[in-house]
Design a protein around this nucleic acid. Structure first.
Lengths: 246, 246
DNA sequence: CGCCTAGTTGAGGTAAGTCAATTCACGTGG
DNA sequence: CCACGTGAATTGACTTACCTCAACTAGGCG
């Protein structure tokens, strides 16, 4: 149970049968660990497997010629790593663990076999992939059209909502191993400005970020400030029979 | 032939058999037209079909509470409209035609049936979807980490490459119905600044944008200036038998 | 003890935004 | 046929959000 955040995530949106849970479980055979800071997937690398993140945090990013990077998204327990790359011959981004992480390696063949056994599971996984894409779209809106403070607030609210789905967060806040430098690369800001913006939000009594913990001081006011509308995270579940409970 | 840009796009990456082309053709039954400026899909709308764009341009965007918008991507002939929304109950974005457009409406059931008839087609379509996602990721990098001039150059180079795939562009340039206001909303800039940046690029003899035509004055120098690396657009094709020619 | 990384703050610079005025092409109706 | 309105592009003057450089603090760890 503690080690099945994916089941918990999918289960929050679809009622999974015992059989489906069993198939899902079967995907978690090849367990591996990676240490913080060492890429598991390199931009340009081909022929790689996908992973399901069990514990710890990672992030996917693109490197620019001048050495700067843009973080596309952070991955938390229950998320896939490199799912899209499996469809393509070449990974167009890199993935690096923020902390030491535990993952299970999934080969395309395993995944396809699991799908053929339980089509509902296939839909659920494709739903998860669509949700990932919707998040990237929202990040684009974030970076393109929100100022630094709103951007920060929106980003942390999204993370909080995602973590809540796998019981690692709540409306109070969440434990967060991200440094201000990583935040800067995710939000398209400089590290210095990230620091200033965090102070600003703290002084406005909206949120705190200290000692690896994000605290929502006033969730509702913060959500309004950031124009945070979480429908893109939780679209009522995939196209499944109506018996799918919420 | 003129009205099958999708076949041309997929065909550029996968060798499609006569049978597969036939199935693809079968998807183009319900033809419809929409006029410029009138949304075909509304943010928050549910129960919508997907479309394949035959002629004309459209764009997908998200609207913010304050009335600003962020354009996520432009769609050109051969592209799907709202493919992701089909998997989700609710569309998280809106789609508006730039020009009058012709589309064919595709129901999920048609698509699934086509897939079951020809699995290779399914893979090809999923490849196209992955490519769309890779483009959104690249737009995020663009807006997050490139300055206005590089951003503009990169964006127009990407459009040029995509249009070339469906024979609507070349290394010389392409016809482009986009206004500077739309450009601004796509690049996260103000319309005024878009104008200044275009002047700057023109004076640097890199590209021109006049009277609805984008001209690449010096393609190679422009590509270097924008750090344009098109691998994310053309990943060597989907996971198909090696007989897929390039 | 001293180094390294993360965080913090100040001073000053700059890319891009805002506001506003002008031009031009175009359609449309008196 | 011309007056008028409208949408797009253009340019100038001024403002500002964010960046860069730089210095300093505090904790962790060999």
């Amino acid at each position: 149970m503690e080690n099945k955040p994916l089941a918990r995530k999918l289960g929050a949106l679809v009622v999974l049968s015992e059989a489906e849970l069993g198939v899902l479980e079967g995907l978690h055979r090849r367990r591996r660990t990676f240490v913080a800071g060492r890429d598991l997937v390199h931009q340009g690398q081909s022929d790689q497997a996908a992973y399901i993140l069990i514990s710890g945090w990672a992030f996917s990013y693109k490197l620019m010629a001048n050495g700067e990077r843009q973080i596309v998204d952070f991955q938390i327990p229950g998320d896939f790593l490199g799912l899209r790359s499996v469809l393509l011959h070449i990974s167009d981004h890199s993935i690096e663990p923020v902390t030491d992480i535990e993952v299970t390696e999934v080969h395309v063949s395993d995944l396809l076999e699991a799908f053929s056994q339980t089509p509902r599971l296939a839909t659920a996984v494709m739903w998860a992939a669509s949700r990932d894409e919707a998040m990237v779209v929202e990040h684009l809106v974030n970076v393109g059209r929100r100022n630094a403070a709103e951007r920060m607030a929106h980003f942390l609210l999204e993370l909080g909502a995602r973590l809540t789905l796998v019981r690692l967060g709540s409306r109070e806040g969440f434990a967060c191993p991200i440094t201000q430098y990583l935040l800067a690369d995710a939000l398209g800001l400089s590290a210095v400005h990230v620091n200033r913006v965090l102070r600003q939000l703290r002084e406005a009594k909206l949120l705190t970020f200290r000692d690896g913990f994000v605290g929502f001081e006033n969730y509702d006011r913060l959500a309004e400030f950031a124009q945070f509308d979480p429908t893109y995270l939780d679209q009522g579940g995939p196209l499944l029979p109506i018996d799918a409970a919420r």
